[in-house]
């Protein structure tokens, strides 16, 4: 199962890199989304894979460490997901405004415009 997840993670990273290397700035934003997905999944895998053992204490508050999945990566990912939403929204709006001001979404054209 780990191997399968590893392949997924690798593919997500590859997708993100591929999108980064495109000229369209919208694709760059999609690349960022891919990157955060890939990284979230990577963090998740480092916590160990356990089925049906969510990170909750028993009713009396005790914890059987052997029967509980690692809560820390989950906590990290949880905030990362929400922040990812904020970042994606911000970059999309930035792209939109940029297009409004410059009339292009082509990074190469922006680079040309930028040159003295």
């Amino acid at each position: 199962m780990l191997t399968l997840l590893a392949v997924i993670i690798g593919f997500l990273y590859a997708s993100s890199i591929y999108m980064f290397l495109r000229r369209s700035i919208v694709k760059l934003v999609l690349g960022i989304v891919f990157l955060s997905h890939a990284t979230n999944l990577l963090l998740f895998v480092t916590g160990g894979l356990r089925s049906g053992e969510p990170a909750f204490t028993a009713e009396d508050g005790t914890v059987d460490l052997a029967a509980v999945s690692d809560p820390l990566p989950q906590a990290l990912i949880l905030t990362a997901i929400v922040i990812g939403l904020g970042i994606t929204a911000f970059s999309l709006v930035l792209v939109y405004r940029f297009h409004q001001e410059t009339g292009t979404v082509d990074l190469d054209e922006m680079a040309e415009q930028d040159k003295p």
Binding site: G10, A14, I17
Partner: peptide
């Protein structure tokens, strides 16, 4: 380029998975 990058991430994940962390702070 993307596949070269992604594939080493895959290998790294497999390698990390093989060595489970010890002294976890999350305990």
């Amino acid at each position: 380029i993307a596949l070269a990058f992604g594939s080493f991430m895959t290998v790294l994940v497999i390698k990390t998975g093989a060595a489970p962390p010890q002294d976890k702070v999350s305990d």
